[in-house]
Structures are given as C-alpha cells and as structure tokens.
C-alpha cells in the first residue's frame, strides 16, 4: 500500500507512442519515489478537450467526463481522481461542477450513461497532479527525496493556461502563480524571472492556425531566454509540445535562434530524485536537455 492512493486519469496524449508519453514515464518515476499509488481508471475515455466544443455540444461532453467519473466511482471508490493533463483536469472538473449544480444536466447525463451501463452517485474530487504534490505533500516533503540537487540550473517556470485558469491551484493568483517556481527551488534549482509564465501557447490553434500560435510561442520562448533560463519547465502536455516543437519553424520565420529544452516538472523531479535519464524520459524530448542528462548520468 502506497502512502497515498489515487484514481489515475492519464489522458490520450500520455499513451504509449503518443505526444506526451514521456510525461507519463516521468510521472511514474516521480510517484515511485514519493510512494504515490496511481491506479488507472479502467477503460477511461477522452475528455473531449477544449476544442471539443465545436462538434460536441454540452451534454455529449458531460457524458464523456461523466463516464470517467462513474468508472472511477465504481472501480476505485473513495479515491480522488488525479489527472496529469491540464485539459483532462479542466474538462473533468468543469463537468463535476456543472453536474453538481444542475439537476437537469445531471438527470440527462445519467440517462446517457445508462447506455454504457453506468451511473453516478457521488462524484469524486477531480485534481491535477500538481495540486496533489503541493497540497497533499507540500514543498518540504518534495524536497526530502532529493539526491541530486539542481544547483546552478536555471528554469523558466511556464505554468501556461489551463493548469492555472479557470481553476488553478488553491491560494495562487491567476496573473503570477508561484508554485512552479517554488517547486523548482525546492529541488535546488533557480527559478528565473519570467514574464510570460501564464501566456497562452495557442492551444489547438497550433494545428488549425499555426501562424497565430507561433507568434505567441515566440514571446514565451524569448522571455525564457531574456530571464537567462537554461530550460523551460511546464505542467501541461500541449504547452510542452507546442513550445518545444515549433521552435524550428519560428526560427525560420522570425530569424531567431531558439533551441531551448522544454521539460515536464515530473522529469525535473525524477532527475533530482536520482532517477536515470531513461526513467525521467529525457530521451522523449525533441530538444534534448543536455544539462539534465549529464546530471542524471552522474
């Protein structure tokens, strides 16, 4: 029995061979060290993501999240649901709020869920992994397992949008949340001054209207360089992918020379906790974090 147990909602992008599979690998390493037990919600489905609004409509979206909540309640009763993806967390938590505040939506969702043989009675709490780390463990507990301090390494803590708005981490501000910086510092790293920490990366528009997203990503990367950061660290899979992958395209368009690694907090934590580069999934970064790889190899 682990120190803390959760119903885990990993999300589509974390699956094997998918765009944030390195996030999942590093989360597993981090959780092993912290003795966090994650039991996957059996047969979980996509949350519909934010972009699902166009075709999805409200009730189908609620049904998708309702199914995950009902499955968690059925198979893992009493456990909080924990998501690592910002959009999964937002969508599911939003669904919980709407279902708890509207009898009509709850009734209709229940009717739809019957088609999948499910039913909701008590909706579990829906939390982001960052929330769990900070609220259920706290910075001191997160410092304790550090065997390789990140001394001398400089991080731009890129919180992004959906981990921060509209819910965010309790007690943090929307405009200047501090938790990611504090997390970096509790691992011995330096959190640089970073103007663009809550700027949007463009989200799904990186696919549909790339030139708009690229303009936003340019500011996000530029500001990290301005702050003197060695790398960017983020809690969100789409932030990670967008900010890492389009640096080449932005260089071409704007004549910049961006080449800054973009890590998940869980990768950074895993390295600080003594995991190997492979366990921290550093091989999953397209722009390799050579300083972290060197530290992990020590």
């Amino acid at each position: 029995m682990a120190r803390k147990e959760y119903a885990f909602y990993p999300g589509c992008s974390s699956q094997k061979g998918a765009s944030s599979s390195n996030y999942l690998t590093s989360v597993q390493s981090m959780c092993k060290t912290l003795d966090i037990g994650l039991t996957e919600i059996p047969d979980w489905n996509c949350c519909g993501a934010s972009i699902g609004y166009a075709e999805g409509g409200e009730l189908p979206r609620l049904a998708l999240s309702g199914r995950n909540l009902a499955l968690a309640e059925k198979h893992l009763p009493g456990l909080d649901v924990v998501a690592t993806c910002a959009a999964c967390w937002l969508g599911t938590r939003e669904a919980k709020e709407r279902l708890e505040h509207s009898d009509i939506l709850l009734r209709d969702t229940q009717i739809a869920l019957q088609e999948a043989g499910l039913n909701i009675t008590v909706i579990p709490e829906v939390r982001h992994m960052a929330e769990v780390l900070i609220e259920d463990f706290g910075y001191d507990a997160l410092t304790k397992p550090v065997t390789k301090g990140l001394d001398g390494l400089k991080f731009a803590g890129y919180v992004g949008c959906q981990t921060n708005r509209p819910f965010g981490i309790d007690g943090e501000s929307y405009e200047n949340p501090k938790y990611l910086d504090k997390l970096v510092e509790s691992l011995g790293g330096e959190a640089v001054k970073y103007d663009q920490k809550v700027t949007c990366c463009g989200g799904a528009l990186a696919f549909s209207e790339p030139e708009k997203a690229h303009a936003q990503i340019k500011d996000i990367v530029e500001s990290a360089y301005d702050g003197g950061a060695d790398m960017i660290v983020t809690p969100c899979p789409l932030c990670q992918a967008n900010v890492e992958l389009y640096q080449g395209a932005i260089n071409k368009k704007y004549g910049t020379k961006f080449n800054i690694p973009v890590l998940y907090y869980s990768q950074v934590m895993a390295v600080a906790y003594g995991s190997s580069a492979k366990e921290a999934a550093l091989n999953g970064n397209v722009i390799r974090a050579k300083q972290l790889e060197a530290l992990a190899g020590k």
């Binding site: 409509g57 189908p60 998708l64 019957q114 999948a116």
Partner: peptide
Amino acid sequence: KGIQAMLKKARELE
C-alpha cells in the same frame, strides 16, 4: 459500443 450509444443518446436529449 457503449460510448457511442451514450453519445448518441446525449445528443438526442440535448
């Protein structure tokens, strides 16, 4: 199958 039936029903209800 269950997911598709669920989504179909949700759309109808809406």
